[in-house]
Amino acid sequence: MNSTFLNRLSHNWLTLRKPVSRLQAIGLGVACVLVCLAGWWFLTRGAYESRIVGPLTLPSPAETFGKFPELWNDFALTRNVLVTLRRVSIGFALALIVGVPIGVTAGCFPRVHAFLSPLIMLGRNVPLAAVLPLMIFIFGAGEKNKVMFIFVASVAFVISDAARAIMDVSARYIDTAYTLGASRWQTITKVLVPLAAPTIFSACRQMFGLAFGYIMLAESIKIADDVGGLGYQIQIFQRRGFREHIYLIILVIPMVALVIDQVLAWVQRQLFPHVYGGDGVLRSLVRVTLIPWENMKSRAFYRTPTSLPSVATAEGPK
């Protein structure tokens, strides 16, 4: 009796790779948060002296969240989040603007890849802790060094991921494009890049999360006065011994990351409906904005061919 019940339970709940409904997934996530909070509360309950974990190590949930208004108002949480976000975004956008075209070129032309591979190797393995002081020598203590630090930390990964994505597109698509009369340039822009784009996008989405971690490192070096940003704040709180604030920021960061990731996921879905389903709003938008450019090319290059398709001949005599 009991064993059949357990069997059924394990069948219903632990089927291998069985998808969960959205509602259940959210419910389970919330449950995890509650369990953690409960554990936190349990470890830090009671008077200071009788706690399992002392208040200097871990303040209780109530103490921690009680500091939130202070963090929000007196320490300008939103402003600092935005400052940090701006730095990561600019640095990462630069890395994309530079890295994706180079990566695509390297993926298309193995000679270019061979030529660049020492640089990519260097960039991927560069010790970031050593780069940071260098950035300050080169770009000074202001905004520039932080942005450039993110750029340097991520550009090599962007290049190599983009190159890999292009190289992973099956050669049969190139053959097909060629036998349909595509030029090399058309094959790159109409076949290789669009087919590799979803892979490149999701690699970059992951990397953005990493870059968000790197920026804390860059911000925690205090040279100039109030440079702002979450990393800088952590630094200040540490010096003043504000444990609660640090814990709060540690909790805020994943939430900000989650929001950004959800936005990127939405962009991804709307750009690549052939992979993620849906109606592809952004893809249509891209298409529509390209129409004038395409029409211009049609006017410039298209000559009605004599032997080529025309509706009348394709249908035969009417």
Binding site: R172, Y173, D175, T176, A177, L180, G181, A182, S183, Q186, K190, V191, P194, L195, A197, F272, H274, V275, I291, E294, N295, K297, S298, A300, F301, Y302, P305, L308, P309
Partner: peptide
């Protein structure tokens, strides 16, 4: 025409069929 399916996954059926014509810059 190949044995493997070589449809361009990112293009709709119509965009697949008109790929070659697009490469010739035939008006949309």
């Amino acid at each position: 025409v190949f044995q493997d399916y070589t449809s361009f996954d990112h293009r709709t059926v119509l965009e697949n069929v008109t790929f070659g014509l697009e490469c010739l810059h035939m008006p949309r």
